[in-house]
């Protein structure tokens, strides 16, 4: 499978020359299966640019199908939906899976974004594409785009966010953004989800000094990410969801410090990559 990063920033888009290299768009990652099927993970502002790139494919003709996995409904993970060009083309179809007590409640959350006070779109039903919105049951695998997907719930401040594991032909990719673990670290179920992942994309919103003063926000520093990668025996760790105030130089430093931390804690063999907009990764 092939991964591409369209938005790697947390909380709010951060435009400006100081974020040009890593990018200022909020969370969005695409995964293409070997057969070419598309899974999109999270719908931050990066989704607009993914959508524009899809217009030259079957999505431009209204024959596109994709699965969207939604970690949670905080703004920085859904704010790109109304600007995702393929949703305005009748015939395209999206299966959206995320957390919710029921599928109708999840759909209601997406509808809330398009409330007429906030958006001229009014409702999902005004988009040309069709949507099949389904709540995910954590721990129960399902098939999407020819890939086997399993979700588990992580604590995220006063709320929760889903982590996803995607598997195809014995290769595995885990997406774990917005994870705020207790001092004891990830739960056994979550660690099992991460176990042996070829690529573990993990929330590294903060450096430890910033995380220490903002524990209640429910994000990881690179230390929790590195600890999780080491405990799970991941092959490669990808840093992701950088704080909106971090410049490219700050993210360089975060990556270097994460590398040093891995080396000092038994993770010398783990490859480390700092996610940047536009970057592609073969799993």
């Amino acid at each position: 499978m092939r991964i591409q990063f369209w938005g790697v920033r947390g909380s709010i888009p951060a435009p400006g020359p100081e974020t040009n290299r890593y990018g200022g768009n909020t969370s969005c990652v695409s995964v293409r299966s070997v057969a070419g099927d598309l899974i999109i993970i999270d719908m931050g502002t990066g989704l607009m640019h993914l959508g524009n790139s899809l217009l030259t494919t079957e999505f431009g003709k209204g024959h596109g199908k994709a699965t969207i996995l939604l970690s949670h409904a905080h703004w920085d993970h859904i704010q790109g939906l109304g600007f995702f060009a393929p949703v305005f083309i009748p015939g395209n179809h999206f299966v959206l899976r995320g957390q919710g007590k029921s599928s109708s409640m999840l759909e209601g959350i997406l509808e809330g974004q398009m409330d007429p006070n906030f958006s001229p779109l009014y409702t999902l039903k005004n988009l040309g594409a069709s949507f099949d919105v389904r709540a995910v049951v954590p721990g129960e695998p399902f098939m999407a785009g020819g890939m086997r997907v399993t979700a588990r719930s992580n604590p995220h401040g006063s709320s929760t966010a889903l982590a996803f594991r995607l598997e195809e032909d014995g290769r595995s990719f885990v997406y774990a953004s917005d994870a705020g673990y207790p001092d004891s670290g990830p739960s056994p179920e979550v660690l099992a989800l991460y176990r042996g992942a070829h690529v573990l994309l993990h929330d590294t919103t903060y450096i430890p000094a910033d995380q220490a003063t903002r524990r209640n926000r429910g994000f990881s520093s690179y230390e929790q990410a590195a600890d999780a990668a080491i405990a799970a025996g991941a092959g490669r760790l990808v840093t992701f969801h950088y704080d909106q105030d971090y410049t490219d130089t700050d993210v360089d430093a975060l990556r270097d410090a994460c590398r040093a931390y891995l080396d000092d804690h038994g993770g010398q063999h783990i490859d480390l990559i700092a996610a940047a907009e536009g970057m592609q990764l073969e799993v």
Partner: peptide
């Protein structure tokens, strides 16, 4: 900017 924030070199 209108509609949606657009980070990137083309809007510096």
């Amino acid at each position: 900017r209108g509609s949606i924030p657009v980070p990137g070199e083309s809007t510096n």
